[in-house]
Structure formats: C-alpha cells, structure tokens
C-alpha cells in the first residue's frame, strides 16, 4: 500500500483546478466512478472485515483475540516490528546521509540497491533466505553444527522483514536531506558542536517529519508483511506465526470470525497509519514550503 509514497506525495501537493472547467456531466461521471470504485473495492471490504469479526458478538471477538496462540502471534509481530524498524531507521539514516551528503563512486548503484526490495516479489525474498540459511542452504550445515536456528525462527522472520522494509526510511530521508544540504551542519561545527551534537541538534530536527513518516510506513509494512515471512517462518502455531500468518491459519481452519478479529487489528493499524501519514504529510509540506520560500529582500538594514 505504501510502495509509491514519494510520488503520491508530490502529486497530492498541488491539486489541479482544471477539472472545474470541464462539462458538469463529465465531472460528475468521473466523481461517481471514482467514489463507486473506492466504495466497492476499498471501503466495503474494510467494513466487511469488522462486520465479520463481530459476527458472533463482542465476547467471541475478545475471546478469539485472547486465545494464547493469537496473543503469541500479536507478541511476535510486535517483537519483529520492534527489532526491524529500529534497524532500518539506523540503516536508512546512514544510507540517506551517505547519498545526500557525500559524493562517491557507486552512488547510483546504492540508490538502485535501496529500491531492490520494492521490485523483488516477497516470496522470492523468503526463498532467498531459505536457500542461504535453511538446512539444505548455503550456510545451513555450518549453522546446524553450531545449533544456530535462523530459518523457522525469530531471526529468519526478522531478516525477511528487514529486507522487505529496507527502502522506506531511506527513500523518505534522501530528498529531505538533499534539500537541506550540509551547510547547517558545518555551521554547527564552526560553533563548536561535536559530530554527535550536530546530528542531534541540527540534522535530526531538520529531517524529523520525513523520518517519522518513513518509520510509520516501515512499521505498517513490517507488521503486515505476509509473503516473505510465510516462507521463512515455518508456521509453527504459538511460536513463529505472526499476525498475518495467524489470520491465514485461522481462516483455513474455518474459524472465520477469529480470522477476521485478528484481521481487524491489522486493518485498524492500517487506518491509524493512514491518519498519521496524512498528518505528517501536512506537517512536512509546510516545512518544505518554508525551506522553499523565495527570500523577499525587504530593505530593513537602514532601520536600525
């Protein structure tokens, strides 16, 4: 859902007024089509999730979520997101910093690599890790003799999730950092600030909204990822099932209300993400306008 966040943001920035000049019939036709489509394909299914989840009442809803296996799935999902999001914040900051503030050979290669997870099918990502760390995989034997379990365990799920969500933070930060340049950091250095103080007081505040935006998208994807995690998790109930995997399993077990109850949590997460995303976009657009404001040269020096 969030693959093209950057482009959407730019497109959404300046609404065109041209539509108002078309004939009223075309205008209304287009609006009805767009609204109808979103209603049938987006809103209706989403509403259906909550209707189905509550089909057997609130009590069943709560008790299905309180099931030990479901609670384990929620815990695991939170844990995986809790590990992979901070990791990708660090990677993303480092990658964006390197790309925006330094000139080096292989920069365009790095940018392409950052985008790689967007273009690889999640199932392939899962298989890739399976072939690297699985029992029959490249390092399988080496890991097995040392009793290090990666596939069908938490490390495998985290690895797959980190890979899938790698681009989000970096992609959000690169344009913001490029727009800011390096002069503010240099100014901080000349004022005596250490590298760390400069990062903390100057760099981070200037990218905070972009960073938060990236974190939110990264988190939503980390919690919702199915394909890659499905391949590496092994579907061990109560152990390696994340929320999306649990939804699938419950549904396959003909426990639709419980599956939808779990799905409703993911849907709520999506709605929350959407709300936060809209809020942050507004914030960021305002910051961007500030940075871009043409500098009006008001003659004021003489007024001292």
């Amino acid at each position: 859902m969030a693959g093209h966040s950057q482009r959407n943001k730019i497109a959404a920035g300046k609404p065109s007024q041209r539509g108002a000049e078309e004939s009223p019939f075309i205008k209304w036709l287009l609006i009805v089509i767009a609204l109808g489509f979103s209603f049938v394909f987006l809103l209706l299914p989403l509403a259906n999730v909550f209707v189905q989840a509550l089909a057997k009442g609130w009590d069943y809803y709560w008790s299905s979520l309180a099931h030990p296996d479901s609670r384990a799935a929620i815990r695991l999902t939170l844990l995986v997101a809790g590990i992979s999001v901070p990791l990708n914040v660090v990677f993303g900051l480092a990658a964006a910093w390197a790309i925006a503030k330094f000139q080096f050979r292989g920069k365009s290669l790095l940018i392409t690599l950052i985008d790689l997870p967007f273009s690889v099918s999640p199932v392939v990502v899962g298989l890739m890790f399976l072939l690297l760390f699985g029992l029959q995989g490249f390092w399988g034997e080496w890991l097995a003799t040392r009793e290090i379990q990666i596939i069908f365990a938490l490390p495998g799920i985290v690895l797959a999730t980190v890979f899938i969500t790698f681009p989000f933070v970096a992609r959000e930060l690169i344009p913001v950092m490029q727009a800011t340049g390096t002069e503010q950091e240099q100014a901080a250095l000349t004022l005596g600030a250490s590298g760390w103080q400069t990062f903390w007081h100057v760099t981070l505040p200037s990218v905070k909204w972009g960073l938060l935006y990236g974190i939110i998208l990264c988190n939503a994807r980390a919690m919702g990822e199915f394909g890659a995690v499905s391949v590496v998790s092994g579907h061990i109930t109560g152990l390696t099932d994340t929320m999306p995997l649990r939804v699938e399993k419950l549904y396959n077990e003909y426990n639709a209300p419980a599956a939808f109850a779990m799905a409703s949590l993911l849907a709520l997460l999506a709605l929350l993400t959407l709300a936060l995303k809209t809020f942050l976009e507004m914030k960021q657009a305002r910051e961007f306008d500030r940075a871009q404001v043409a500098m009006p040269e008001v003659s004021d020096v003489g007024k001292q």
Partner: peptide
C-alpha cells in the same frame, strides 16, 4: 574546526531552520 575559536558566516547564512533567531544565536 570546533577548537579553532573562529566565527564563520556562510554564503547562504546556513541558519538553523528549525530554531528561532534567539536559539540560533544561543547555539
């Protein structure tokens, strides 16, 4: 650079955008 005790004014001023005038000067 931190220990040279110099004041540097950049061509485009490089003011800290997220800080007020007072906080810029106090930095």
């Amino acid at each position: 650079v931190q220990q040279r005790n110099i004041g540097f004014v950049f061509q485009n001023y490089a003011l800290f955008k997220s800080m007020t005038v007072a906080r810029n000067i106090a930095f």
